[in-house]
Simulated scan of single mutants.
Amino acid sequence: MTIWTIICAIIMFCILVLVHEGGHFIAAKSVGVKVNEFAVGMGPVLLKKVRGETQYSLRLFPIGGFCAMEGEDDQSEDERSFGKRPLWAKAIIIVAGSFMNLVLAVIVMAGIILYLGIPTTSISGFSDVSPAEAAGIHTGDKIVSIQQQEVKSWTDITEAISAVQGETVTIGVDRQGQQLNFTMDLTQEEDTGRKIIGILPDVSRNPFTALIKGAEATKLLAVQMVEVIGQLVSGDVSTKELTGPIGITKAVSDSVKYGYVYVANLAALISLNLAIVNMLPFPALDGGRLLFLIIRKVTGRAITDDMEAKVHFIGIMLLFALMIYVTWQDIGRFILN
């Protein structure tokens, strides 16, 4: 790993933390909660500036950040303290951090899709070996059917061609309003062996469509992440598969080698991971704080601020222990080997 890779990893992590804590900050301000400090990083203060009632600071260790609200972890008589807000306002503040990470993941995924383009059913060109071109199909033709079955997307085309039984396929195209059919031999892609006809799709760069596709891709990734978390809880996936800051830096290093699209994709994955993990109902995490809000609303004064603070402190210690564990694993996997 180079210095540049480490710098990229630090910048990425700081941006993700800034977005997360920025969500808490914006939500807190919007419901009238006083914010004492908004910090990126942990440990000693490197830079600070006070604007209004809030101190904005950059701290030494790029391993997190925080939005320190009045009365969040202790009693405060200030009418603008976190503790004085109604349940709905507290819930919005708590959820806002993960929500912003989720929004960032969708936007980054949409940006990647917009940059790469969305394949359409129109043909922009042909590969070196192209049965479609030999059969008489032209660039600009729009594929409307395969084996007399209607197709509406590029995915429909690839799946239909792969499913063809036999050595030939009939392709229906729209050429400037004229419906034409062409029958051609199938060939195989050299690397994968899948059936192809040697066509290249035209691509669309519609921002609205890209946003929808970005949301769909993020939803699919979120489902997969939740499944993995469930497998970790059930023991089907070992904790040895977990990784920490060193592993993330190694992933950034690998992504940089392939280009910034891969770096952006990794950033979206990590942002989504932060959104999901932070909402787990575990002490010290946002999900744990939200759970305590609900429990205390139901039980009244059965749980005091001091009791909740102690539970969250235990949660923080357990999270630190987990971080030490995964970091030690990362050292063994990526540094000592």
Score class of each variant (00 low, 15 high):
T209K: 14
V261H: 05
K240W: 07
V237L: 13
V223A: 09
A251H: 12
T249W: 00
D254A: 15
Y260R: 09
K250V: 13
E216L: 13
I248Q: 04
L211D: 00
I246A: 04
F208W: 11
K195M: 10
Y260K: 05
S253G: 15
I197S: 02
I246Q: 03
D202S: 14
D236R: 15
K240L: 03
L220H: 11
I212T: 01
S253R: 08
V256S: 14
T218G: 03
G230F: 07
T243G: 15
Y260T: 11
K240R: 14
M225L: 12
V203C: 04
S204E: 13
A251S: 15
D202V: 08
L220Q: 11
P201D: 06
G244Q: 05
S253L: 10
K195F: 08
V233F: 14
V233W: 11
P207F: 08
K219T: 04
A251P: 06
P201F: 02
I246T: 04
Q224T: 12
E216I: 04
E216W: 00
R194L: 12
Q231T: 05
V226W: 04
I229F: 14
T209H: 07
G244K: 04
T243E: 04
T243L: 02
K219A: 09
Q224P: 03
Y258P: 00
V261R: 06
P245G: 05
K219F: 14
L221A: 13
L220I: 08
P245N: 07
I197Y: 02
E241N: 15
D202G: 06
N206A: 07
Q224L: 12
S234L: 11
L242K: 08
T218W: 00
I229H: 08
G247W: 03
I196Y: 01
